[in-house]
Every structure is written in C-alpha cells, then in structure tokens.
C-alpha cells in the first residue's frame, strides 16, 4: 500500500512541475538587468539540464535515482539536492516536533478539565477561545507578534535560527539562542494546533465518559482521578493518534508561509525559494521527502494505534 502511494505522488509532482509554463532557462532568458541571454545559450542550458529529452524518459531516469535518494544537483547553486534539503530538514523538524510535543502537553490537561466540567464556565470560555483563535490565520498573528514583541519592544529575535556570532558561543548560549529564535515562530505553529485539538480531545473524552465502563469503574470504588488516568485517558488516545496522523502533514504544509515570514532556514522556505527559482530537482526532492515523511508518520501512527488499542491490532 505504501509503495504505490509513493510512486503516485512522485508521478504527480513530476507532471505538475514539468507541464506548467516557464523553465529555469526561460526564467533567465526573459529576465531583466543584463538584458537576458542569447538563444544559443538558452539552448545550451536546455541541453545541460536535459530539458529537451522526452517527458517519459526524464521521469523514468529520475524515478530510478529517487529510489537511491539521489535527487541530482540543484539548478540554483549546483550542490547536491539531498545536501541542500538535509541542512534545511532539522530547523523544520525542530520547530514542528517540539511544537507538537508542547501542544499535546497543553491540550490534554485543558481538554480533560473542560470535559470533566462540561457546560461550566471554564469549558465554555475555552471552547469559545478555541473557535476564535482557530479562525485567525497564523500569518496575521505572526505579523502582530513580529511587530509588537520583535520590533516595538525588541524582546525576542524574529528572523532566522541563530544570532550573529553563533559559532563563537558556548554550548548553553547556543541552546538559549536557538530557543529564543524559536519562540515566536513556535507560537504561530502552536496556537492553531492547540485551538484545533482541544475541542477534539474534549469531545472524544466526553463520549468516553458516557461509556458504560466508566460508570462501572466508579461503581468499583475507583476515585475520579483513577478513573480518568487509568480508563478515560487511555481510551482517548486512539482517536487522538489518528488525528495526529492527519495533523502532522498539515503542520508541515503550514510551515511554508511561516518560515518565509520568520526567515527560518527550514524546508518550507527552501520549497518557496526553489519554486521561485523553478529549481526542479530541489522541488521534486522536497516533494518526495514530504511524501516519505507523511507516509512514515502514518505508519508510526498505525503502529502506535495498534499498540494502544487491542481491537485495532487484530483487525
């Protein structure tokens, strides 16, 4: 199942990029500044980048290289694509994974409290706040945060991953520096995640609380705390895992705008830059890598789900 999905994604990316108008050669030829390049040079560029070979043979050759994770060299700076992507991989993973971890640590207690006190003030306020926050696009919040905390008060850095002079810092200073740079962009990733997950976890938990086995657990003399931690939360985990599998790709997708905005040297910004440059090898390498990540996440989620719920295991 995983492999056909993978080939399908690779094919669609390939076609989308190659059938859309414009090419790296024409981009330079039609450009301004030095007045463009001659048509001879244009043809040489096309040959150099193998742009004149038939579509199908280009795809075939490319697919065999993809399997070996060899994406060729970037059109933009001639370095291997895999190298360019790898150095951009960790800032993105850093901010998204840490955000998701922190998000879960925030979501589960809040959602549990709201579910256990459903209909009370706290529950209503939290639900309202979630709807409200979820409706505000992250780039607006990002701009506001940059303007207020970054520019006006200069409390936090808002551009890039590290400060100048990072390489001379001691280890803990480097650590603090990266944390400081991550705060604002992290917040922009975090709040929609929390606003989306809290109502979801709360609703899941409410339905678990209405199950017969919860009432039975109370009848067996368990305290509320014991019932919640030993029976309600474990039963909320399955649906939460499933939805996490859907959210991780969404968070990665959302990284493009935010990373460009915060000059974050991650995959999202690399994708933006390479689309701008029509840097096919990088774009396709990125797409394939995203597909691998998404498929990997799905696989991990399925395994975790099977581990957490015996009914899934034998299905």
């Amino acid at each position: 199942m995983t492999i056909p999905t993978f080939v399908g994604i690779v094919l669609i990316t390939f076609l989308l990029i190659h059938l859309s108008p414009g090419s790296p050669a024409s981009g330079t030829a039609g450009g301004f500044g030095d007045g463009g390049i001659s048509s001879v040079d244009h043809d040489r560029l096309r040959t150099h980048f193998e742009l004149d070979a038939p579509l199908l043979s280009r795809f075939g050759r490319w697919l065999t290289r993809v399997i070996r994770f060899d994406f060729g060299r970037s059109f933009a700076d001639g370095r291997p694509v895999s190298q360019r992507i790898l150095e951009r991989l960790y800032p993105t993973l850093l901010v998204t994974l840490v955000t998701i971890m922190i998000g879960l640590c925030i979501v589960i207690p809040i959602a549990s409290y709201a579910a256990l006190h459903a209909g009370k003030h706290f529950d209503r306020i939290i639900l309202g706040a979630c709807v409200g926050f979820y409706a505000i696009p992250p780039y607006i919040v990002g701009m506001v945060l940059i303007l207020i905390l970054g520019v006006r008060f200069e409390w936090l850095p808002f551009s890039g991953l590290t400060s100048e002079g990072y390489s001379e810092m001691r280890l803990w200073q480097k650590f603090v520096d990266i944390i400081q740079h991550s705060v604002l962009i992290g917040c922009c990733f975090l709040y929609p995640l929390v606003a989306y997950l809290v109502p979801f976890v709360r609703a899941t938990m409410l339905s678990v609380l209405n199950e017969d086995f919860v009432r039975a657990a109370f009848a067996r003399g368990l305290t509320k705390r014991q019932v919640v931690f030993r029976h309600v939360l474990p039963n909320t985990l399955g649906p939460l895992l499933t939805v996490m599998g859907l959210i991780v790709p969404a968070v990665l997708g959302g990284s493009v705008v935010l990373e460009v905005m915060f000059a974050w040297p991650g995959m999202g910004r690399l994708l933006y830059e390479s689309i701008h440059d029509r840097d096919y090898p990088v774009i396709m390498g990125m797409t394939v890598l995203s597909a691998v990540i998404v498929l990997g996440v799905t696989l991990v989620v399925d395994l975790l789900h099977a581990w957490s719920d015996p009914r899934v295991r034998y299905a």
């Binding site: 199950e211 017969d212 086995f213 009432r215 039975a216 657990a217 109370f218 009848a219 067996r220 003399g221 368990l222 305290t223 030993r230 029976h231 474990p234 039963n235 985990l237 399955g238 957490s308 719920d309 015996p310 009914r311």
Partner: peptide, 24 residues
C-alpha cells in the same frame, strides 16, 4: 462513599462487555 463502593457494595451490569475497559 468511594470506600463503600466495590468494597462493601458491588455492582454487576447488564451490558457485560461494555462494562469492561476495552483497552485493558
């Protein structure tokens, strides 16, 4: 009351399978 439930007065339910935690 928590100390009474289970220890002094216990209960058996009609929905026998549904009264068990499915993931334990």
């Amino acid at each position: 009351m928590q100390a009474v439930r289970g220890k002094h007065i216990a209960m058996v339910f009609q929905n026998s399978v549904g009264s068990l935690d499915p993931v334990m």
